[in-house]
Amino acid sequence: MTVSRRQFLKLSAGAATATAFGGLGISLKPTVAKAELQKLKWAKQTTSVCCYCAVGCGLIVHTAKDGAGRAINVEGDPDHPINEGSLCAKGASIWQLAENANRPQTPLYRAPNSTEWKPVSWDWALTEIAKRVKKTRDKSFQLKNEKGEQVNRTEAIASAGSAAMDNEECWAYQSLLRSLGLVYIEHQARI
């Protein structure tokens, strides 16, 4: 199946004519490819770990030095023992975890019985979540179980966890939840 060099030359119109007409056609003079400015020369490099699955691939995050401080490129870390620079399709897209104009810019709130999401501020959202967690927790808090043993728990709130949290974040998260008295604590920590 291999096409020989001769056949290949025949295939390419430009090269074929150059051969046939003794160099009338193709330009053989040296051309120098203009290098694009290498944006990474002006970037700060930070290592990180991909949060998308349990493999835990190493990343290099390039952030702009020009004051913007935003990520401009994220790629696999060639010195990382796990992935040696490689990334899957999901990991290769991880730059968009930080920079993506198509993602919601603020938290969205849908009021009970409403059919519409409305953009709200982080301040409002966090205050509202804290208020509602406190209300439910205070209302459902059990100091003792049926046998009279001290339990200090709430069975009215559960946590389903997050797939994008790492081991350390999960530890901090579960200790917050336990301090509230939650017993239904699930997680999807993968790294």
Partner: peptide, 19 residues
């Protein structure tokens, strides 16, 4: 020996370059 270069330079020799 890129055929695209041979074709493109008929119209503009700056269009396709080979490093």
């Amino acid at each position: 020996e890129p055929p695209c270069l041979g074709q493109a330079e008929l119209d503009d020799e700056r269009a396709v370059i080979q490093d």
